[in-house]
Amino acid sequence: MDAIAHFFGAIPFELLLIQTVNGIVTGMILALVASGLTLIFGIMDVVNFAHGELFMIGAYIGVVVLATTGNFWLALVISTLLVGLLGAAMQILTLRPLIGRDPLTTILATFGISLILQNYALWQFGPTSRKLPEPITSSFTLFYLQYPWYRIVITVISAAIIGSFWAFLKYSKFGVWIRATTQDRVMAQAMGIPVPWVYTGVFALGAAMAGASGMLFGPLGSINHTMGLDWVLKAFIVVVVGGMGNLGGSIVAAIFISLLEAYAAIWVSPAQAVIVSFIVLILTLLFRPTGLFVSISK
């Protein structure tokens, strides 16, 4: 007992708090990625294996637009819109012909798209990583650290996007269409809702969210053609842990897993901290295979 108390006593309180902030920052980006993924799944029953690549393309578009215009926020808007358009094109060209087929074919199709996008990025931008500069360089003192304001801004923007998306689903006409299609697509069609376009719109929305999160995350890490994989894997873990198709659960799970990884990073290297989320996933599959947070908002 003593040893355990000593072990935990040895962690400085400041470090714990810093890691909490870090966990929430990455958690919000992850929530943004995962809510796009879970939205697409919940409504279209499509598991989008290309979601990580949309994230990556978002970051790359950001790099290009920033290099030409020099304005980060403009780049954010443009990359969000372009990735949204790309999503719409993807849906119309590849997923729409597959409506009514075995849902497994959509997994195959999105996997094919992820191959194309990833190799396109490799071909176009080469294997070397790119960097995005932080648009806000000022920082504040968090104990002994100079903590960049930009990270706080990301968290707020992510929360704002998720929040406005929530409001959009709840109050706008298109949001009502989306919810109606989720509940009963045949009936929705019968009531005159253009279901195929709802699908396209939903896919574009989810893609745009992935693109925005890629751009927002850009300055925190390096941008390369394989960056999507880490994020899509984490987002998959989040949607399994949170309950697939459950928006609230995904957000809670994203923050939960990111916090755990941040705390784990106190003791082990960040690369090994990933193992923690794997363990959470395995435990979830063992004890609550339908998701840890299913009871939270449906």
Partner: peptide, 9 residues
Amino acid sequence: VYFAITTLI
């Protein structure tokens, strides 16, 4: 559907 995801993970 989850089989693809979990095997990937």
